[in-house]
Structure formats: structure tokens, C-alpha cells
């Protein structure tokens, strides 16, 4: 049976590249984002929704269940970033970051797991960030929201292990996507200086870790976070 892969935030950036990667491998890919995607392929289905909207998320999973009957891999890529000094951060920014980065991951994981558990098989990949391990100044809220995702993943891995579902995180370094377009160059350079391997991250670096987590042979790996760039947590 062909694998069904759901990628959130698949319209652009890492999500889009992941979608194209799996389509090239002949997998059925379902993507979602708040706006329409221009990705056209017979293996690709797109849902327009906000991952924080419980009703819309449930509806999408209901349609996936009815059409395919199963879902094998969930990649919770949708996320937003914001840099600001803690003292200058409005509460609304905190709410937006947590709602998208944490609540969105929670909601999609919960609904996907309900379908995955029937086959006693599933792989969930969540997105953290090196900002967690590096305790970066100016990223208190973003790093906290990603830290929450990591913690959620660890506990989920325990609760879902008996259902045949693994849960892991990939924590990318800065990659040239829209997510970091507003971050000043000197900040990016400073961040790279903390890495053991001093270069900008590539989307292929992320794809490599995702491929590892979803590999059939990775069934004994769960609750882990892999930091790219040689960042040591």
C-alpha cells in the first residue's frame, strides 16, 4: 500500500520542498496551508486551512480517513517565528507563536494519531529549532514555543509508543526561507558561529533527517530531537 504523508505548511519553504521530495519518490502527499498552493501533481492534494482551527483540522483528517483509510507519516512543519527582546514583546505575539507552533502541532498530531493507531503504525515528525538549545537572546518566545513542541514530542512518544507510532523532532539551523528573512545578517552569522559545522543550513539537511526518522528501520527511534549543524543541546 502506498504511503500517505501529510505535511503542514506545505505551500512554501521547507514544507514545499519536502512535498516535492516525497512526490518525486512516488508517495501520496497531502499538504495544507492557510492559502492555496500552486503545486500541481496527481500525487498531491492540498487543503486550505489554519492548523490552529480545530474544526477545520478535524474535517481535513475526516476526509483523509474517508479517502485513504490511513495515514502513515505526519510532518508538522507549519510554524511562525518572531524576534524581539522579551521586554518589548506584546502578549499577542506570544499567543500567535504558541497557537501556531504548539497548538497546531498538538492538534494535527492528535487527529493523525487517531487514524494511525488503527494500523498500529505511524511516524510523526515535529519541528523544533536550534534556538532551543542555544537559548538565543531575542528569541525567548519562539524558542519557548519550540521547546514546548520538543517536550510534547517526548511525552507523546511515550504515550503513542504502544500504538506503534514514533514521534521525533528535527531542529534546523537557519535556512534561507521566508521564516528568517527579517533576521539581520549579523544575527545569522552569530548563530552560525555557535554551530560545530559553520555554514548555513540547507533544506536537504532537513530532508535527510526526516528521511531517517521515517525509514522503516527507524522503528526503534522515538522521543528524540536531532539538532542540525552540530549544535549540542
Amino acid at each position: 500500500m502506498n504511503q500517505i504523508i501529510l505535511i503542514t505548511g506545505s505551500r512554501k519553504g521547507i514544507g514545499r520542498q519536502l512535498a516535492e521530495h516525497f512526490i518525486a519518490l512516488g508517495k501520496n502527499v497531502i499538504g495544507c496551508s492557510r492559502s492555496e498552493s500552486d503545486l500541481r501533481n496527481e500525487l498531491y492534494t492540498h487543503f486550505c486551512l489554519d492548523v490552529t482551527d480545530e474544526v477545520a483540522v478535524k474535517k481535513m483528517f475526516s476526509q483523509i480517513r474517508q479517502k485513504y483509510g490511513h495515514i502513515d507519516i505526519l510532518i508538522n512543519n507549519a510554524g511562525i517565528a518572531s524576534m524581539n527582546h522579551f521586554l518589548l514583546t506584546p502578549l499577542i505575539t506570544v499567543e500567535k507563536l504558541f497557537i501556531t507552533n504548539f497548538n497546531g502541532t498538538f492538534l494535527c498530531s492528535r487527529e493523525a494519531s487517531k487514524i494511525m493507531q488503527k494500523k498500529r503504525y505511524g511516524r510523526i515528525i515535529n519541528f523544533s529549532s536550534v534556538a532551543v538549545a542555544l537559548n538565543l537572546e531575542g528569541e525567548a518566545i519562539y524558542a519557548s514555543s519550540k521547546s514546548a513542541v520538543e517536550q510534547l514530542s517526548r511525552v507523546m512518544s511515550k504515550e503513542l509508543g504502544g500504538l506503534g507510532i514514533t514521534v521525533n523532532c528535527v531542529a534546523p539551523t537557519p535556512i534561507d526561507t521566508d521564516l528568517i528573512k527579517a533576521v539581520p545578517k549579523n544575527k545569522i552569522d552569530e548563530l552560525i558561529s555557535y554551530q560545530s559545522i559553520k555554514r548555513m543550513g540547507l533544506i536537504d539537511d532537513v530532508i535527510n533527517v526526516v528521511d531517517f526518522f521515517i525509514n522503516e528501520k527507524s522503528s526503534f527511534i522515538s522521543g528524540q530531537t536531532i539538532y542540525l549543524g552540530g549544535i549540542i543541546s
Binding site: 475526516s62 480517513r65 487517531k114 493507531q117 488503527k118 504502544g162 500504538l163
Partner: peptide
């Protein structure tokens, strides 16, 4: 607890 999860999910789907 795993049994409860499976049953609850199955009932939610059936109701839908």
C-alpha cells in the same frame, strides 16, 4: 489506556 484510546477513536469515527 491504549484500549480506551482505540475504542474512543472508533466511536468518534462511527458517530461521524
Amino acid at each position: 489506556s491504549l484500549g480506551l484510546v482505540s475504542l474512543v477513536v472508533s466511536i468518534e469515527e462511527e458517530i461521524e
